[in-house]
Nucleic acid binder design. Sequence first.
DNA 1: TGATGAGTATATTCAGACGTATACTTAATG
DNA 2: CATTAAGTATACGTCTGAATATACTCATCA
Lengths: 199, 199
Amino acid sequence: MSSNPEGTEARPRRLRRQERREQILDAATRAFAKAGGFTPTNLDDVAAESGVTRMILYRHFDSKTDLYRAVLDRAALRLHAAATSGGELGDHSVAGMLRWASDDPDAFRLLFHHAAREADFRDDVDGVREAMVAALLPHMEKVAVSEQWAAWAANLATTTVIEAIMAWLDAGRPDEDEAVDRVLRAVDGIYQAVVPATP
Amino acid sequence: MSSNPEGTEARPRRLRRQERREQILDAATRAFAKAGGFTPTNLDDVAAESGVTRMILYRHFDSKTDLYRAVLDRAALRLHAAATSGGELGDHSVAGMLRWASDDPDAFRLLFHHAAREADFRDDVDGVREAMVAALLPHMEKVAVSEQWAAWAANLATTTVIEAIMAWLDAGRPDEDEAVDRVLRAVDGIYQAVVPATP
DNA sequence: TGATGAGTATATTCAGACGTATACTTAATG
DNA sequence: CATTAAGTATACGTCTGAATATACTCATCA
């Protein structure tokens, strides 16, 4: 059970398949985020960031598209897990999302600032988004003046959560707990925007 | 002064330089918006949309980049004009922006959903954005608990205006006048999110 | 110790798309 | 009518980057 007797292994060049795969996904997330999405990133960038030859990327993923999908799917899965760790989607999800965004800002940006705008990949992201919209819609329908405005509000509130977190990252991530509260208050503003009348 | 005596000219194939240039910019705006930004759009798409050969694009613009810049600059100029038609930037700007977005949704989407994420072109858009942020910042600083949160709020409010208008386009553009009011109320929610305390 | 498989190194193929060159057509205008 | 300039048609050069092929190195482990 001690196949690695050395005390401080410098950095093992040979990883087992699964480990290397994860490492590549980590590096690819950084590379894709830095360059700004699928097209502007080339496989040499990813290979360099992974500390590995371009060839080996093909031993783990069929194509650049396949790799990108794997990156996005893993990120979406993790975000979904973070948002539903306390049960269903709801107010508490904001805390989970914000914490996850803080842990992996590259993945967060990649999902919502790049993949969301890429025709071939938006579907890989929209699962999460649609779940958020669906969770918000009933609440909006309760207060909104019409179905049409309720749909508008549910979409905008979802976007607001995402962009509020993004802006928080950009602002230097002050006061994590307070941030959750402020994001929720911003969302509350969307509610106030679709109630029938303001006398 | 009557060089075109025909009653109903079908469609004049030869336009004067300036007219053709404008027509190409119109078509290019549609083509770039439809394909989703600079990279995924090729010049054949633009040529087809313009009803013109690819060759002639080069008689009006030095390069694809030059053409794209011209499209973005014109759009940004028009948006700025729409937002400041009533003087300085302020609450009334929302009405102007919303009307312009309604008139030219392709240009609006191109600016804020595509060019804003493209490394080589974001600067061509950020002029407008930065002006909005700058206009909002003093107001935020008056109410916000700290400088950092004021900056966060100014950025988020700007994004909210843009995304609220985008969501309004997606929702089928109901009630233009009401829409302006609702967008402003959503922005008001951002103010409420950064005031010092909520007893 | 010998087979396995992770990783390297280098060369090559292939496709898409920007950009250029060239020869031809035809409307507009003095 | 003759010149000019807008536009067409087609082919070509070139570069980037994805994907494949092949031969080699060397840990690891049964």
